[in-house]
């Protein structure tokens, strides 16, 4: 556990760029490689999802990330989690990271909730004992006792999100990365998870919260960054960023943008 006196920021991102390299029109195959052997065409598409972004997050604070669809928010968070390697730049993270990225986090829909929790936990490096100790807490927090032995394809999307959130917060992370998981929970669960996040922050954890629910961002965050087409458009206090962002969206802070639709 990093101590409270540790002066280093929890997350330090410097000139980060991330590029996806995929073939869009056709899947890469041996056959096509052989067929066009000799010719130099390449069917690789590069998507610069994050371009030259720098910011840092102090320990014990909550960073909100807003931006339109495809702005590069999930990519940014994956890169902080160490899952996507930077194409350029550098990410420095101090602390034990727990990720809750986009809905359905590491979850295989054919498997039961229990199997998913066990596999996810083991992959993240928990021991069986740790898992056994935390399993009941996870199920209790998610309130899904009756559903744990059903395949996850029978879950509603809210139930999905609840289980994912519950796994992530129960890992006792120093750094919690949450990508749009809360927006599917019902009001009661949302309140409960806010309380839980605040508790984590009081215990000196750091949270990165990606959401389209601007009210949640406003309520929870200490600072907010606004991503636009892969670039960092703004990095400031929540009120200032949200004002600018809603103005940009040309909608104003009406109920639709502020609430979680």
């Amino acid at each position: 556990m990093p101590s409270a006196s540790d002066p280093r920021p929890a997350i330090h991102v410097e000139d980060l760029s991330v590029t996806y390299r995929t073939s869009v029109e056709r899947r890469p195959t041996l056959r096509s490689m052989i067929v066009r052997a000799g010719r130099r065409e390449r069917y690789v598409h590069e998507i610069e999802a994050v371009k030259d972004v720098s910011f840092e997050v102090p320990r014990g604070s909550v960073l909100g990330v807003v931006g339109a669809n495809g702005a590069g928010k999930s990519t940014l968070v994956r890169s902080i989690a160490g899952i996507l390697p930077p194409t350029a730049g550098r990410v420095e993270v101090n602390g034990r990271v727990s990720t809750l990225l986009a809905l359905g986090v590491g979850f295989n829909r054919r498997l039961t909730g229990r199997e998913n929790v066990v596999l996810g936990g083991l992959a993240a490096g928990w021991s069986r004992e740790e898992l056994a100790a935390k399993y009941d807490d996870i199920v209790r927090f998610a309130e899904l006792k009756k559903f744990m032995d059903l395949p996850m394809r029978m879950y509603s999307s809210g139930m999905y999100g609840r289980l994912a959130f519950s796994v992530a917060v129960n890992m006792d992370p120093d750094i919690l990365l949450i990508d749009e998981a809360l927006s599917v929970g019902d009001a009661r669960f949302k309140r409960k998870s806010f309380r839980r996040m605040r508790k984590l922050c009081e215990a000196d954890a750091t949270v990165v919260l990606v959401s389209h629910a601007l009210q949640s961002i406003k309520d929870l965050c200490d600072q907010v960054i606004w991503m636009h087409e892969g670039e960092l458009r703004m990095w400031d206090e929540p009120d200032a960023v949200i004002e600018a962002y809603t103005e940009f969206l040309e909608v104003g802070e009406d109920a639709v943008t502020m609430e979680d639709v």
Binding site: E92, L122, G125
Partner: peptide, 30 residues
């Protein structure tokens, strides 16, 4: 696992073998 990570660009390159194998072994149950 460690509490301090630095991620920098790389295309192809081996991570430190010792810690890779240790982490692999730690997750054998997986």
């Amino acid at each position: 696992t460690s509490e301090h990570h630095v991620y920098e660009p790389h295309k192809v390159g081996l991570p430190p073998i010792g810690s890779y194998v240790r982490e692999l072994w730690r997750r054998r149950e997986f």
